[in-house]
Amino acid sequence: MIDPGAHAGFILAAYAATAIILGGVILASWLSLRAARARLQRLEALFPDGGKRPS
């Protein structure tokens, strides 16, 4: 079991730093996928044949 000893702050800081870095990467990856998809959809609307198979 956890015993909030003298070093609780360090443990918290380590987990927070990990969450921030990995969370940031997750958020950035997800947002860029969404943005790319939106751009592609707008662009594909320009092609009435619905976008042929990718070469």
Binding site: I2, P4, F10, A14
Partner: peptide, 9 residues
């Protein structure tokens, strides 16, 4: 002590 819990990440 408990700082070893940092090891897991």
């Amino acid at each position: 002590g408990d700082t070893v819990r940092i090891m897991y990440i």
